[in-house]
Nucleic acid binder design. Sequence first.
RNA 1: CGGAGUGUAGCGCAGUCUGGUAGCGCACCUGGUUUGGGACCAGGGGGUCGAAGGUUCGAGUCCUUUCACUCCGACCA
Length: 569
Amino acid sequence: MRFSKLLIPTSKETPNDATLASHIYLIRGGFIQSVGGSGLYNFLPLGKRVLDKVKQVVKEELDRVGCQEVSLAFVTPASLWEESGRYEKYGKELLRFKDRKENVFVLGPTHEEMMVNLVRQSVKSYKQLPLNLYQINLKFRDEIRPRFGLMRGREFLMKDGYSFHADEADMKREFDLMEETYKKIFRRLGLEFRVVEADSGAIGGSGSKEFMVLADSGEDTIVVCDGCDYGANIEAAVRQEKVCDAPAPQLGKEKVHTPNASTMEELAAFFDVDPFYLVKTVAMRALYDEGRSEIVLFALRGSDALQEVKACNAVDANDLVEVSEEELASAGLVAGFMSPIDVPEGVRVIVDKTIEGATDMICGANEKEYHTTGNTIEGNLDYHDIVAVQEGDLCAKCGGELRYTKGIEVGHIFQLGTRYSEPLGATFLDENGKSQPMVMGTYGIGVSRLLAAIIEQYHDDKGCIWTKETTPFDLYILVSNVKDEAQMRSAQKLYEELSAEGVDVLLDDRKDRFGAKIKDFELLGIPYGVVFGKKLSEGSVEIIERKGLAKEEVSLDEIKDKIVAKVRG
RNA sequence: CGGAGUGUAGCGCAGUCUGGUAGCGCACCUGGUUUGGGACCAGGGGGUCGAAGGUUCGAGUCCUUUCACUCCGACCA
């Protein structure tokens, strides 16, 4: 296609709200356009081409393993969400609105309900299972803080797939198949990624894995092991139980006056013990459906940190928020001196499972300026894993050292079980004519986010660098001076010959000078460029490889074959 | 929601303190020159100054209210 005919509004200026490379270059390259800020974007012709290519890869790989594409209605009746129980649970991110008849609808942030509804209407027998249905459609999440361009928009393109099975084992088989398929997809897109254990979040379900594109700008912290292939989101990471070389405090059961010792550091110094032997008690307010909430104390070792997602899951809350000192006081608690032992009536306590049975522990006394020593954590308490794995902790799988890295979540697969099929009544008759809820899996890929992830992983200080499967064009032909008839004529000839071979060519036939055009070539990130310029009078042109910007002089007779070889290779 | 800040041309900004004919750069249009690293000359178009109300002879500027957006912390593909 001809550059002069395409809408590619490139710009020298960096938008002032853009900090991420992907955001800056996608806007500057004229791939996308912001719609009044606020996490909404238009895809311009170039961005749409990339999007379609990514979609195509996703679709091909899914169809190859038997998934079937559908397209669900975008507007969802709220009643479906009430049936599944997520209408309350999903929170403010779910955009709700009414039609003229005052019926309530939502814009789907994910479509479990809609897909289950589709299937329950048409699938009645085990003979129709298994089934894996997906769509690549817009989703809307009213994000608290949209930012980073396509990385966290409010409206975004997602592939969401749902599988339906007669039993757990078959669902697990499909789950593994999807894991392999996703790996193929991300490999084809040319991404460097890691599959990690994950928390299931608002979707629900048991086993879940995330596909993380490794990039420093990633919003997720992932824990990886240097010794083996273990990887997990910090929200779900586990470790070998910690041991402590420092001696346990030799203190009996006592109540000690501890003025000015309300933090773990102060307390460790006061008693001259390792924080390992202190009990850290964190108070949070847990929020539930219908506006209910309660104060919960989370107790763990002083040497550990609370992992909020794990904590939230432990109490099965929708969210955890901080508690003010006044609220604590009215519940009979004193900040800095709290304890999981002898708590006031009505305060729920969750204890980290690594301190179950721990002895010689120092706790708050639930009284200002007092702590108690010589405690043993035992009895009928509610034990859960609520600690955040830290760098340097040891891998539960191989004993190697764990470290943090950053990732962009581009895919997430879940073993759902009957979390949706049961409440929504998606049942089938098995071989014995008995009614059973379908066992489900759900699988997502952030398609529009992938564009951002690709650029985060592949860019330089000049612009985008697209991978083979994602580039909007295979080749950029740059005509240095369009008024030079020889240049224009041979460029056009090459353009036509390559187009006939099925190579996607962008012909830069704009009246601008060389400088402006080469900058746009670098900004747009098309893998190869051919320059028709000064050397044409000697019968040669220049090939530029976008990645690394290496230049190669090639004679006119060879250029076509060289390009075909590069693009196909 | 908590804290900080900004709303003036398509984009980036000045002007607001101290009220007096709305400006600059980029982009855009016309003509000409130029053509290997974002050219130059000349001419030109484009604005309810976020919105509403108030003070004033006069408001982008002062007062009140309101809306939107951005940035820093808790969510997710």
